Amino acid sequence: MWRSTLDRINKGTENIAAVFLFTMVLLVFLKVVTRVLIQSSFPWTEELSRYLMIWITFLGASIAFNYAAHIGVDFVVDKLPRMLKAVVQVIAAAACMVFFLLLIFKGFELMGRSMIQSSPALNLPMGYVYAIIPISGILMSFNLVDSTIKKIRLDE
């Protein structure tokens, strides 16, 4: 049940990131075309594409956990005995989890404080832009737990 739920969440995250990437490419293309054709462009396209890039980056970081695509120094850990290797992996996961919990709690705090601030061109509450910080913290936490369990089970 855990695995299938997490797979659905990760697939949904990938789909959202893909839609955002496609939209961002279209917006940048629109901006370039309007600059060439009418020597002017819509100010909101640059702002929205920047916000989409931020969301894509944070969503991509959470997706990378699913594929074990984050940089790690496994050379030293792989040389350790099985039990010590598991201990090191749990300690590393705990350190990451502390960071993710900071992302979640401080992200919600930042999001709440910035809801009164609006973006210049879109007049969008900045809290919506900052919402990706706690969202990605939650997604990365789920994937961290899953990948740590998989690593420890592989070593048994």
Rank of each mutant, 00 (worst) to 15 (best):
Y51S: 07
A94R: 01
V98S: 06
D74E: 11
V77M: 06
M111F: 01
Y67S: 13
K85H: 15
M115Y: 15
E47N: 02
L80D: 07
D78T: 07
V36Q: 03
L122F: 01
E109Y: 10
A93R: 03
L103W: 05
I54D: 04
G72F: 04
V73A: 13
S114C: 00
G112P: 07
G72P: 00
M53L: 13
R82L: 05
S49R: 07
V88K: 03
M53S: 13
K85I: 01
V88M: 12
K106M: 01
A92M: 07
G72H: 13
V32G: 11
Q39F: 15
M111K: 04
V36G: 00
C96S: 15
P120R: 07
A61I: 09
G107L: 00
L59Q: 04
Y67A: 13
V76P: 05
P43N: 06
Y51D: 08
K79I: 09
F99T: 11
L27E: 06
T45W: 07
A94D: 05
T45M: 11
V76H: 12
W44V: 14
E47A: 03
E109S: 11
A121Y: 00
L110F: 08
F58K: 08
F108V: 10
T57H: 01
V98H: 03
W44E: 10
R35Q: 10
R82F: 02
I56T: 06
T57I: 14
R50M: 13
T34H: 02
F58T: 04
A92S: 14
I71S: 12
R35E: 01
L101Q: 06
V76S: 08
A69P: 02
V36I: 14
V28T: 10
A64C: 09
Q89A: 10
P120V: 05
L30E: 10
L110K: 09
E46Q: 12
A61M: 12
V32A: 13
Q39W: 07
A61G: 15
R35H: 04
M97I: 08
S118V: 14
V36D: 00
V25H: 05
A68S: 14
V33H: 00
T45H: 05
A64E: 03
Y67P: 01
V98T: 11
E109H: 13
Q39Y: 13
F65S: 02
M97W: 04
Q39T: 11
I91R: 07
R82Q: 12
Y67T: 09
P120S: 11
I71Y: 11
L26T: 09
R50T: 15
I56Y: 02
W44Q: 10
W44L: 07
S118T: 13
I71L: 14
K106A: 07
W44R: 05
F75D: 11
G60T: 06
L27F: 15
S118M: 15
L101G: 10
F105G: 02
T45E: 00
G107D: 00
E109M: 09
F100C: 15
K106I: 00
L27N: 06
A61K: 00
I54T: 04
E109L: 04
H70V: 01
E46M: 08
P81E: 02
L80I: 05
V88A: 12
L101M: 12
A69T: 05
L48E: 03
H70M: 00
V88E: 07
L26C: 15
V25M: 14
G60P: 08
V90E: 01
L80M: 14
V76E: 08
V25C: 13
I91Y: 12
R50W: 07
R82I: 13
P43E: 02
L80Q: 10
G60D: 10
